[in-house]
Nucleic acid binder design. Structure first.
Lengths: 250, 250
DNA sequence: GCGCAGCATTGATCTGCATCAATGCGGCCG
DNA sequence: CGGCCGCATTGATGCAGATCAATGCTGCGC
C-alpha cells in the first residue's frame, strides 16, 4: 500500500534506480530527489530541473513535517526513513491513514491545505519543493499532470482497500494484510531481505489498523507461536507466506 | 462526503444550477449532463461539447453499472437516483466506499480499470461518456485536468475521513456522521427538506459504516427514542442537530 | 382479502476486541 | 553498574457490537 493524503505511491511495476551515470534514470546518487515511481513520466532534463528546485532536509525522529489543515506550502519527497500520516479526533483518537516510505511523495494532491498531519517515525530525509515552484514546474507539462492524476486515482483505490480492511476484516486479517503490504513496499524500494522492517511503534500499527496496541501485540505473538512469522528487533520475518496470504489476501 | 473511487464529489461551495437560458450555466434542463461541481472549470461551449459526447441512460434499481477490475470503458455522471460503490472480500463481506448522488461522477480517475463495483440503489439516470471520448475532451484542456486533479485530492481526503470513522468511531458516532453528511450532500443538490432521504437499505448503511444491520437499526431507534431524529419512510428527519454534531463532528 | 417475500425491528445471548492492570525488557543517563 | 523511562508483552475482566432468533410491517401478486 502506500501513503494516502496528498502523496504518491511507488508504482507497482517500477524497479529501483541503479543509475551511476548522469541523470539518465531516476534517483541516482547525484540527484537529491528519489523516485521509484514517477519515473516513466520524467525526462532526464526534467529530473534535473526538479532537482534544481528541491532542497534536501533532515528531519529528526518524532518531528512534524506539516500539520492537518495548515497551508500547504511544500511538496515533499521522502528519501530516507518513514513518515506517518494521520487524522485525529478532538478527544485524541488517532487514525493513521498511511506510512510514507522512501520514494513516496507528500502533498502531491496540490491542495491549498494539507489534509493530514505528517510526522517522522524515525530519522527521515526529505527533498522539499516550494509548492509554487512545483506548480510552475508541473504547469506546461500536461503529460506529468496526467500522470499525477493517475497516481491520485491509484491512491484513492488504496484508500478504499484500507476502508475494506478497517470496516470488515478481523484483527488477524488486518495484521496479515499489513505485513504483506509492508513487505511488498520494502521489496519495491530494493530491500531484498526476508525480514520486513517495522520502524513504527505498536501504537502506530494499532492506529493504522483500527486496533489497540494490546491486540496488535497479542496477534503478532500468536502468529509467532504458530510459526507464521518470527519477531525480530524492529521488524518481522515472514515464515509462512501462504498462511499469511490466506488471512491477508486482498 | 461523497463518492470515493474514480468519482467526483459535488464541490463544497457550488450552488445548484437554475439555468433556463441556453448553456450559460451548468446543468440546465436542456443539457443531459448534471454538474453541481465541475462548474467553475467549464465554459458554456465546453459544456455543449461535453453534452454532445454524452448519452443519457436509465438504470433500473439493483442493476450493476460496472464491476470492480473490469476495463473502464465509460465515465458516468449521475443525474438522478443513488449509486452504491463497493469492494468485496472473497467470502462476501462487503464494504461500501461511497454513495453517488445526482451530480457526482464515476470513473473520473480515468484509470484503465474500475476500482470498485457500482450498483444502482434505486432507479438511476446517468449520462454516459465513452472513456476515450472523455479523454480526448479533457486532453488539451490543462485547466480542466488540473481541476480534476484537485477533485481527486478532495476525494482522497474524504476517503481518509472515512478511514478515521471506520477505525476509530463508535456505532453512534458513525450513524450521526453519516446522517449529517447525507444531509449536507442533499442540501447541496437542492433538497431543502429537513428530512434526509435514505433510499439505501439498512444493510447498505451497515456496509458503509462497518456495522451490522441490527446495530444500525438499534442505534437509529435509540436516537429516535431520544428525540434526536424522527424515522420516516425512506428517510430520517433530523431534530436535534446539536446533539448529532456532538457525536458526528469531524 | 390472503399469503408470501423482503426488509426492519426487537430481544437474548455470545464473543472479539477493548480496557484495566501488572510485569518484562532494553537503552540510556548519571 | 543501577535505576529509570518508554515501550512491549501478558493476563484478567468488561463491554460494544456481532450473532442468533423471532416477530412485525409493507407491498405485491393472485
Amino acid at each position: 500500500m502506500s501513503i494516502a493524503e496528498p502523496l504518491l505511491d511507488s508504482c507497482a511495476g517500477a524497479t529501483p534506480c541503479d543509475c551511476r551515470h548522469g541523470h539518465a534514470t531516476n534517483g541516482c546518487e547525484d540527484c537529491k530527489v528519489r523516485l521509484f515511481s514517477v519515473c516513466a513520466a520524467l525526462e532526464s532534463s526534467e529530473l534535473e530541473e526538479l532537482d534544481r528546485i528541491s532542497q534536501a532536509k533532515q528531519v529528526p525522529a518524532r518531528t512534524t513535517l506539516f500539520e492537518q489543515s495548515a497551508l500547504a506550502g511544500s511538496v515533499f519527497n521522502v528519501t530516507d526513513g518513514v513518515v506517518r500520516l494521520y487524522k485525529s479526533l478532538p478527544d485524541g483518537r488517532r487514525q493513521i491513514v498511511g506510512f510514507a516510505l522512501p520514494g513516496d511523495f507528500l502533498g502531491l494532491a496540490l491542495q491549498d491545505r494539507y489534509g493530514v498531519t505528517a510526522e517522522a517515525v524515525n530519522a527521515v530525509a526529505v527533498c522539499r519543493f516550494a509548492r509554487s515552484a512545483f506548480l510552475t514546474y508541473v504547469d506546461g507539462k500536461p503529460h506529468l499532470l496526467r500522470r499525477l492524476h493517475e497516481f491520485a486515482g491509484h491512491e484513492l483505490s488504496l484508500a478504499q482497500d484500507q476502508m475494506l480492511l478497517l470496516g470488515r476484516r478481523t484483527a488477524e486479517e488486518k495484521i496479515a494484510a499489513f505485513l504483506l503490504n509492508m513487505q511488498t513496499r520494502y521489496a519495491r524500494i530494493g530491500s531484498v531481505s526476508v525480514t520486513v522492517p517495522l520502524p513504527m511503534s505498536r501504537q502506530d500499527i494499532a492506529d493504522y489498523l483500527g486496533l489497540t496496541i494490546e491486540t496488535v501485540s497479542r496477534t503478532l505473538t500468536r502468529l509467532a507461536r504458530e510459526k507464521v512469522v518470527l519477531i525480530v528487533p524492529d521488524g518481522v520475518r515472514l515464515l509462512d507466506l501462504e498462511r499469511l496470504r490466506l488471512s491477508g489476501a486482498s
